[in-house]
C-alpha cells in the first residue's frame, strides 16, 4: 500500500480519531471532559449550520427552532409515553423537516435576504409556541428531565459517556458535511453561493438544492437538540430557541470561516474561550456573556469578513507556495 494521497489522508483521520478517543481514559478529569464535550457539541452545531449557510451562502438565524423541536419532541415523548430518546431523536428530527420546508420552500424562490428574515421569524415563533403550549411544555419555566444514568436513555453516570456521544456526533456531522461538500449537492451549492445566475443558466435548480441542504442541516441540528437535552437534563425556550442562541450557532460557523470543514471546531473553541473570559470579567450577570459575544462577532467580521479560518488558510497557502519555490 502506497503511503500518500487518499491513503495518507485516511490515515491522518484514523490517527486523529484514535487520539481523541484515548483522551478520557488518559485524562480522567470531569471538568476537562466537560469543556471538551461543550466544544464537540458546539462544533457539531456549527458544522450542521455550515451545510446550508457556509456552502450555500444562505444565512440562517433560526437554527434554534430546529434545535428546540429536536430537544422538546424527544423529551416530551420520553416523559409522557416513555419512548427512549434513542428513537425520539429521529422523530424530533423528522418533525424539524416540515418546519424547514415551511420557511425554505417560499423563501428560496426569492432573491435577497428573505430566507434570513424567515428563519429569524421561525425561531421567534417556535419560542412563542412553546410558551403558549404551557400545559404541555411548561412554558418559560422549562422542563427538568429525569436523570437515569442509563445509556438506553442516552444518559451516562459521568462525562466520559457523553464524551463519546458528542465525539460521535461531531464525527458524524463532519462526515455528512464532507460528503455533502464533495457530492453534486455541494458543488451546486458552491456554484449557487458564488453566482446564482450563472449556476441557474447552467441548469441548476437552485431552490431544490438549497432545500436539500437546509433539510440535512435541520435534521442534524434537531438530533443535536436531543443530545443536549439528555446531557443537560434541563431545557427551556431561552436556551434552545432564543434569537441569541440562533446567532450563537451562526457565530460558530462564521468565526471558523464560512464553508470550511474544520472551521466550526475553531469557532467552538473561540466561543468557549470568550465565554470563560466574560464570566471571569463580568461574573454571571445576565447579558455579560452575550455582550462579549456581540463584540467578538462584530470585531471578527470587521477585521476579517471571511472568519478566522481564512487566516489559517492564507498561511497554509503561503507555506505551500514557499515549499514549491
Amino acid at each position: 500500500m502506497r503511503l500518500g494521497g487518499a491513503n495518507l489522508r485516511r490515515g491522518t483521520w484514523i490517527a486523529a480519531i484514535i487520539a481523541l478517543a484515548l483522551i478520557p481514559p488518559l485524562f480522567r478529569r470531569e471538568d476537562l471532559l466537560h469543556w471538551m464535550n461543550l466544544m464537540f457539541f458546539l462544533a457539531a452545531l456549527g458544522s450542521a449550520w455550515n451545510i446550508i449557510c457556509g456552502y450555500g451562502g444562505q444565512l440562517s438565524l433560526g437554527h434554534g427552532a430546529f434545535f428546540a423541536v429536536g430537544a422538546y419532541t424527544s423529551t416530551l415523548l420520553w416523559m409522557w409515553y416513555g419512548i427512549t430518546p434513542l428513537l425520539g431523536m429521529f422523530i424530533g428530527a423528522a418533525l424539524a423537516l416540515p418546519m424547514a420546508l415551511m420557511i425554505g420552500y417560499p423563501a428560496f424562490r426569492l432573491r435577497g435576504t428573505y430566507f434570513t428574515l424567515g428563519s429569524l421569524a421561525l425561531g421567534s415563533v417556535v419560542y412563542r409556541i412553546i410558551v403558549y403550549l404551557k400545559p404541555i411544555t411548561q412554558g418559560n419555566v422549562g422542563i427538568p428531565l429525569w436523570f437515569t444514568a442509563d445509556p438506553f436513555y442516552l444518559q451516562f453516570p459521568s462525562e466520559i459517556g457523553y464524551y463519546y456521544v458528542f465525539l460521535a456526533a461531531l464525527l458524524i456531522t463532519t462526515y455528512v458535511s464532507l460528503r455533502v461538500k464533495n457530492s453534486w449537492i455541494g458543488y451546486y451549492l458552491f456554484a449557487i453561493g458564488n453566482d446564482q445566475d450563472a449556476a441557474e443558466s447552467l441548469g441548476v435548480d437552485s431552490r431544490k438544492i438549497k432545500l436539500y441542504a437546509l433539510l440535512i442541516s435541520a435534521f442534524l441540528t434537531a438530533i443535536l437538540g436531543t443530545l443536549y437535552a439528555q446531557w443537560k437534563c434541563y431545557i427551556d425556550p431561552d436556551a434552545t430557541c432564543s434569537t441569541d442562541f440562533s446567532i450563537q450557532i451562526a457565530m460558530i460557523g462564521i468565526i471558523g470561516g464560512l464553508g470550511t470543514l474544520f472551521g466550526p471546531v475553531v469557532g467552538a473553541a473561540v466561543m468557549i474561550a470568550a465565554q470563560a473570559l466574560s464570566v471571569s470579567f463580568f461574573g454571571a450577570v445576565r447579558g455579560g456573556v452575550y455582550m462579549v459575544y456581540g463584540i467578538l462577532l462584530m470585531g471578527i467580521i470587521l477585521i476579517r469578513p471571511t472568519g478566522i479560518m481564512g487566516v489559517f488558510e492564507n498561511a497554509l497557502a503561503a507555506v505551500r507556495v514557499l515549499r514549491r519555490e
Binding site: L59, L61, I247, L258, I301, P305
Partner: peptide
C-alpha cells in the same frame, strides 16, 4: 464591510452581533 467586499451573510451577522450587543448591554 462594503469596502472589504464582505459576503452579504457576514454583513447581516455583523448587524445581528450589534443587536445582540446592544440588548445584552441593556440587560447588563
Amino acid at each position: 464591510l462594503f469596502d472589504l467586499r464582505a459576503p452579504t451573510p457576514a454583513v447581516l451577522l455583523c448587524l445581528a452581533g450589534l443587536s445582540m450587543f446592544l440588548m445584552s448591554f441593556a440587560l447588563f
